[in-house]
Amino acid sequence: MTGARIPAVVVADIRKSYGELKAVDGVSFTVAEGEFFGILGPNGAGKTTTLEIVEGLRKPDGGQVTLLGEQPWPRNPKLLPRIGVQLQASSFFEKLTAREQLQTFGSLYGVSRRKADEMLELVGLTDKADVQENKLSGGQRQRLSIACALVHDPDLVFLDEPTAALDPQARRNLWDVLRAIQARGKTIVYTTHYLDEAEILCDRVAIMDRGRILAMDAPATLVRGLDAPTHVVLQKGLLTREAARGITGVDDAQEDEVSLTISTRKPAPVLSALAERGTLDGLQVRTATLEDVFLDLTGREYRA
């Protein structure tokens, strides 16, 4: 069952302008079936516009989109039951409880009402089943919105910033949910501001800025390609800056109020040298992350 499979998503050179502004400026990517694909980028990068064109909610000015072998635009009823979408702004029926929202959305896909409770359980909202949507907290609403996107068990899931507004615990729970969905062979395309999260979840990420994809690969590959130094962080006072600079393999050392940060491209000998000096207490090692990739690609600090 390999090789012959058609890709879940094929996007070829899509474009969308709002007046002068090129919101999406020639974006192309392919997502294989079963893949977890992330789109990253700062506010206004064009993530939502890209996603909505791919979902068939917006007509691109140019370019081609194919989902599971079908065209999403114009509205394609054959494709709709197979895709699940969570919009960036949550969309709910007025005055309905969490359970009723799920039942109503489910019924649009011919899903039985019993499925609603299962979905509430999945996103940890069982105790909020009878609470009206407008009385849920932001994060709870977000989780409900995700549950609504998944209620009909779609093959291809699009989530626009599903982890925004979630507390750390809920975020981790959602990671488990998403991994479980992927484990069942589903394809997930999602956007996020959290680079660390994308690194953990995604098979591949596309980094977007100003309507274009700047880089696209597995997170680890992107980080490796960067050839960025590893940072070793020590408590201040254990070692002077000069002494640190004297260690073989250290490129640089910087001090602030609480810590001393050593940059190195040969972390192994540096760490053993530090061990010899007995300065390993409270030591942290930070290797390059997607954040560094972003900084490297855009020349700007990444601010979510």
Binding site: E55, G56, L57, R75, P77, L80, P81, I83, V85, L87, A89, S90, S91, F92, F93, E94, F105, L108, Y109, C148
Partner: peptide, 14 residues
Amino acid sequence: KKQVLRRIRLAPVS
């Protein structure tokens, strides 16, 4: 306004 229309548009319902 609440995007329910867009969401319905994405569901296989006429």
